[in-house]
Amino acid sequence: MVLVIAEQRDGVLNNASWEALVAAQQMGRPVRVAVAGGDPGAVAAELAAADVESVLAVGHPELESYTPDGFVAAFAAVVADAAPDLVFLAHTYQTREFAPRLAARLGRSLVADCVGTRPRDGRLAFVRPMFQGKFVADVAPTGPAPHFVSFQIGAFRPDALKRGASPAPVREFAVTLEPGAIRQSAEAPFQEAKQAVDLTQAERIVAVGRGIKGQEHLSLVESLATALGAEVAASRPICDSGWLPMDRQIGSSGQTVAPKLYLALGISGAIQHLVGMKGSRTIVAVNKDAEAPIFEVADYGIVGDLFDVVPAIIAALDA
């Protein structure tokens, strides 16, 4: 059996949970889903629409707001009770925080951030990126079940979900939490002050990465942006270094954009960057490494030194 751990906040399911469910349905084994919260009944009922054996509503007042201690304790009890072969989760920030500890508590390990499954010689293996997306690896969990696997967001299509003919049974799963078991206390999530620049409205974006080497070279990128009538954006390290303000950052912890034209200059194409821009209509990549993962999402690619290529593009636009 595959146990899927779904994620919700304030009664709203995380969409990525449907993707983990699709991954589970494709294993050809019975699927059970569990979701935790203060009173997760409504979310559990929503999950019951999927073609699954049953849904567990793991409710407890202490689980109303997520904490790693609370979720590890609760799901350790759920997994021990359900005794699944596999435990699937979406690789969200919340999963990254509690799932490795949950697996470790049960003496197991988590195969994280997988993009697919791949049986090999009778062994179950999962495909996961390594070296910032330059390679992928087939990784097999070792030791006895259950094996824990998390899937990268977007690796499975939520619309491939099989729905049940009638709603699956929902069961309440009672957890006991020792007093003092939860050491973290969480405040309400918040957003920083409104972004000064709204890149989502830009028609064209020239984005720069660490290939630019130094802040003093940014004027080159700005000249190209001006010539194209584009906004300047960046990968995270450029903003981390303070070379450009944070509100110019594209990616999972920055803005998500889909302009008509996205030029990526000296950006390697790590998944956290790609999720913020791969919906762009036309993507151009300039990178001196012919194997940089950015070329996998690019429509046009130039392998070369951006310090040669960018001035040449500016000149060609002028001609």
Binding site: V136, V139, P141, E296, D299, Y300, I302, P311
Partner: peptide
């Protein structure tokens, strides 16, 4: 707790037109 069975370069999923030549030509 896990074992790498094989590492490889990921398969391309998109048709990328690679433009070569000198910087000016490209």
């Amino acid at each position: 707790g896990q074992e790498i069975l094989e590492i490889r370069v990921p398969e391309k999923t998109k048709q990328t037109r690679m433009i070569d030549g000198s910087p000016a030509d490209a």
